[in-house]
Amino acid sequence: MAKELWKGNEAIAEAAIRAGCDCFFGYPITPQSEVPEYMSLHMPEHGRVFVQSESELAAINMVYGAAGSGMRAMTSSSSPGISLKQEGITYLAGAELPAVIVNCMRGGPGLGTIQPAQGDYFQATRGGGNGDYRTVVLAPSNVQEAVDFMQEAFDIADAYRNPVVVLMDGLIGQMMEPIEWRELPKRDLPPKDWAAGGRRGRAHTNIINSLYIDPDECDKLNQHLTEKYAEIQEKEVRWEEVDCEDAEVVITAYGTPARIALTALELLREEGIRAGLFRPITLWPFPEKALAELSARENVRAILDVEMSSTGQMLDDVRLAVEGRKPIRFTGHAGGAIPSVEEIMDAARKALKEAN
Rank of each mutant, 00 (worst) to 15 (best):
Q233M: 15
G198D: 01
P280H: 14
I251Y: 09
K228N: 13
G173D: 01
L267W: 04
G198I: 01
I232S: 00
H204D: 04
V166S: 02
P190Y: 01
T252S: 12
K192A: 09
E288M: 11
R279N: 12
A247E: 10
L184W: 10
E288I: 08
A290D: 00
G276A: 12
A253G: 06
A195F: 13
G198H: 01
D246P: 00
E240V: 10
W239R: 01
E241S: 08
T252A: 10
A247N: 11
L167F: 15
A264G: 09
A230R: 14
K220H: 10
I251F: 03
R274C: 03
G170W: 09
I213L: 13
P287E: 00
K186Q: 08
L211T: 08
L189C: 05
R187E: 05
D214R: 04
A195K: 13
E241P: 09
P190W: 08
P178R: 09
G173S: 12
L171R: 09
R269E: 10
I273E: 12
V250I: 07
G198Y: 09
R202H: 15
E248H: 10
H204R: 04
I260Q: 07
G272I: 07
E248T: 09
F278M: 07
P285A: 04
T256I: 13
G201C: 03
T282F: 06
L268S: 04
A258T: 01
P215W: 13
P257S: 11
V237H: 14
G272S: 07
W194M: 06
Y160I: 03
T282N: 02
G198P: 03
K192E: 08
A157I: 03
A258G: 01
G170P: 00
L262D: 12
G201H: 02
D158T: 02
L265P: 15
Q233C: 15
Q174P: 00
W194N: 07
F286G: 06
N206M: 13
W181H: 03
M175S: 05
P190L: 07
L265V: 15
E234Y: 07
A195R: 11
K235Q: 10
R274D: 04
A258F: 05
V237D: 11
G197K: 03
P178Y: 06
T226Q: 08
G170T: 01
D219S: 12
K192M: 12
A203C: 01
E288D: 12
H204C: 00
E240M: 05
D169W: 06
F154W: 05
C244A: 06
T256W: 15
L265W: 15
E180I: 08
D155P: 00
P257I: 03
R187S: 11
F278G: 05
P257W: 10
L189S: 08
D193V: 13
R274L: 09
T263S: 14
E236M: 15
V237Y: 12
A203G: 11
A247Y: 06
N209P: 04
E217A: 15
K289Y: 14
N162L: 14
G197S: 03
N206W: 13
N206V: 12
R269M: 02
I232R: 00
W239T: 07
Y212G: 03
V249P: 01
D214P: 06
T282K: 05
P163M: 08
W181M: 02
E288W: 14
W239D: 05
L225S: 03
H224M: 07
A261V: 13
K289F: 12
L268I: 00
E288Q: 14
E266W: 02
